Amino acid sequence: MTEGPFLLRQDDEGVVTLTLNRPASRNGLSLGMLGALRDALADIETDASARVVVLAGAGPAFCAGHDLKEMRARDYDPAYVEKLFTLCAEAMQAIVALPKPVIARVHGVATAAGAQLVASADLALCAEDARFATPGVHIGLFCSTPMVALSRNIAPKHAMRMLLTGDLIDAETALRFGLVNDVAPAAELEARTLALARKIASKSPLTLAFGKKAFYRQAELPLAEAYVFASGVMAENLKARDAREGIGAFLDKRAPCWTGE
């Protein structure tokens, strides 16, 4: 059988929903899927109409991680394996580097590299029945690349527990760990995610780009250097037309009119 498009894109007033579209494999991250995701993010980066991205999954799961059947079919060929994990790293970093907020909308399971997707997103909402895990230890393949995103997203003790046991955690535990921002009834997940995305999309796109880039950059710096860096970002941001417009609108008690400049 021939697979359909790896990704489905839907645009709705500045909110772009990218849906992983391999439901029969629980949206396994094959070479094709990872390439499609990386390329879609590159397209969105230069699309002025796109303000916020929602990552979702078709079928019964968000994403079950790498496609193990594809790995075995390729006989674990070293060249294929190197290409696979390089492409995965590029896709995950593209999420972080995208100058537009990315929200993961999670239902079913998000395991291994699927959990990595959730941890790489800027925000995440999940259904009450969602489950998360980094289960590589069960099959003799430690979740080393998911570990990178996970360890930068939740407390070390929580990350190590997930990585060392491979156990599934439920939605409320993921919320307590800080892996997701909110838990919703399954029937409300899409609407609540869209409402959050639209709220963020109503802000200045230039300001969001400044803020997202600065957030991840300052986190890599020592405290004193982080303040020097952030002060420079604030000064540069203040030169923007949107900043002047936003301040003026606030003082004049009116709605701002963003230009993205």
Rank of each mutant, 00 (worst) to 15 (best):
S25G: 09
N21A: 12
V54W: 02
V52G: 00
N27E: 05
V96D: 07
A24W: 04
D11N: 11
R38T: 05
A79V: 15
L34V: 07
V109F: 08
A56V: 06
R51W: 06
L8E: 10
A121Q: 04
G59V: 06
A36L: 04
N21R: 08
V106N: 01
T46H: 12
F85P: 02
A24T: 04
Q116W: 05
L29V: 08
V102K: 01
A24C: 05
D39V: 03
L29C: 05
P99K: 13
A94L: 09
S49Q: 12
A104P: 02
V106M: 06
L55V: 15
K69F: 11
A119K: 01
R38Q: 13
K69I: 15
A50P: 12
V54Q: 10
V118H: 02
S30R: 02
V109N: 03
T17A: 13
I95T: 10
A73H: 10
D11R: 15
V52L: 05
A94F: 09
C63F: 10
A110R: 01
V118P: 01
N27I: 13
A48E: 14
P101E: 10
G57S: 12
H66L: 14
P101K: 13
L84N: 03
L98A: 10
R38I: 02
R38Y: 12
A64F: 07
Y80Q: 09
A48F: 08
T19H: 06
D39E: 11
A48G: 07
S120M: 15
L29A: 04
E45C: 09
R22L: 15
P101D: 12
A73R: 14
A73Q: 11
Q116C: 11
S120A: 15
T86H: 11
R26I: 04
L8M: 08
A94S: 14
E90F: 06
G65I: 01
V15Y: 00
Q10P: 02
G108I: 02
V102R: 00
T86I: 05
V81E: 07
L29T: 02
L87S: 09
V102W: 02
I44A: 15
V53R: 00
R105H: 10
D75T: 08
C88W: 05
V118W: 00
K100F: 05
A104I: 15
L84S: 02
S120H: 08
A91I: 05
V53K: 01
E82V: 05
D75C: 04
T17S: 14
A112N: 12
M71F: 14
Q10T: 15
P99N: 13
G108R: 00
E90A: 12
T19V: 14
L34M: 12
I103M: 09
R26G: 06
A119V: 03
G14C: 15
A121R: 00
L31F: 09
A61R: 03
I44R: 00
A50T: 14
